[in-house]
């Protein structure tokens, strides 16, 4: 069985492995600290760790799109900005 029809590349494989690794890490975190760590942050409503990961990933996607639309193809700064954004989300949201 070949997966050549999926047209895999190394960067896209790394991208998906990172996403799956993040989800797996959340599973491990949940195993050691069950309950999802709900709290009310700056958005003024309750969020769990899963919500914060979702907001981080979705926000990062839009940061990258905005960077591409406004700035151009170099995405390292967008990635750095996304990491800062994700840390902010996990700290304050």
């Amino acid at each position: 069985m070949t997966f050549s029809w999926m047209a895999w590349t190394l960067p896209t494989a790394i991208f998906f492995i990172t996403i799956f690794a993040l989800i797996a890490a959340m599973g491990v975190w949940e195993y050691f600290a069950p309950g999802g760590g709900p709290r009310v942050g700056i958005l003024r409503f309750e969020t769990t760790r899963g919500d914060r990961l979702f907001v981080s990933l979705l926000g990062s996607a839009f940061i990258h799109l905005a960077w591409l639309g406004l700035g151009g193809p170099g995405l390292w700064w967008a990635l750095a900005l996304s990491v800062v954004y994700a840390i902010g989300v996990f700290r304050f949201v």
Binding site: S4, W5, M6, A7, W8, T9, P11, T12, F15, F16, L65, L68, G69, G72, P73, L75
Partner: peptide
């Protein structure tokens, strides 16, 4: 969805042949 992501960074003219295009299509 994974396949669509893979296609979004490449160019193809069919016959299962792909050429790296990076983020060009998004721009």
């Amino acid at each position: 969805l994974m396949t669509v992501v893979n296609y979004s960074v490449q160019d193809t003219f069919g016959n299962n042949q792909f050429f790296w295009a990076g983020t060009d299509w998004f721009v």
